[in-house]
Design a protein around this nucleic acid. Sequence first.
DNA 1: GCAGCATGGTTGGAAAATCAAACTGACTAT
DNA 2: ATAGTCAGTTTGATTTTCCAACCATGCTGC
Lengths: 145, 145
Amino acid sequence: MAAGGRDCSIANALGVIGERWSLLALREVLLGERRFDQIARNTGASRDILAARLRTLVARGVLTRQLYEQHPPRYEYVPTEAGQALAPILLALTDWGDRYVTDGPPPTRWEHDCGAELEPELVCRHCHAPVAAGTTRLLRLGRVF
Amino acid sequence: MAAGGRDCSIANALGVIGERWSLLALREVLLGERRFDQIARNTGASRDILAARLRTLVARGVLTRQLYEQHPPRYEYVPTEAGQALAPILLALTDWGDRYVTDGPPPTRWEHDCGAELEPELVCRHCHAPVAAGTTRLLRLGRVF
DNA sequence: GCAGCATGGTTGGAAAATCAAACTGACTAT
DNA sequence: ATAGTCAGTTTGATTTTCCAACCATGCTGC
């Protein structure tokens, strides 16, 4: 996909979820809106593009299509494990958007299981310290983000 | 941008960094490759599109353009605070790509300041428990991701 | 001075992706 | 019979993207 660039899992990931509308469609599915029309309405994507995006998300294992009605056959889109694993990334992106893009108060607010309002933070699974720009080294290439 | 869809900071964030090549350009800048030609080479983006992307990233406050040579005037692209705040998201995306997209071993491996190989994890800043699908509730709309 | 080189873009035309709206087909509800 | 729902597909016009080549600026060697 990014044929000329670095061999990199960011590029690979974006090959799956990086096209326009893909992440918004996934947002809807994770929010529980699993039917085509609802996803179309809530994202604003045109229906043909949405159909294409959902097809590739299914093909790449982020969503599955499940029959919820035989006659006529109707399918809904359900997140796979890979799809659910994107939930934290979407929450982190929400937080970033709240801070640096959205004017005014955050349009959505989240509560964590602990009862507090969610402020997501990326930490190292080993030392539990925050992972931020400059706390990380790319093995073989020197200090970076 | 997503005029028809939900009012949502994910959509707002994607309006800034969601276009093709934007995140790969940011990856390069965060990796320390701050010059146009290097970014073009390492991403594989065509030069005109890259110029447009860098312009919008600068306009939206993710990067700044800094003069590093007077004669001839030459600029390099440096991440702002907002740009650095995307570093954890890129690392999380790398992790997701490693797990669910990239075939074979991860193309990059990261070491955290603590000395361990980085396994990033999103946690709640308050209770320090992992934030995953199903541990979070959208205030006003019921349990979701 | 002048050719050649490097950097950081811009330009033009073809190819591909996107858009909104209409359409299809199989049903359901009144 | 008429209207409406749902999940797409088709259509035709508009936008974006891609690629290669070109341009502008200034520097370096001769």
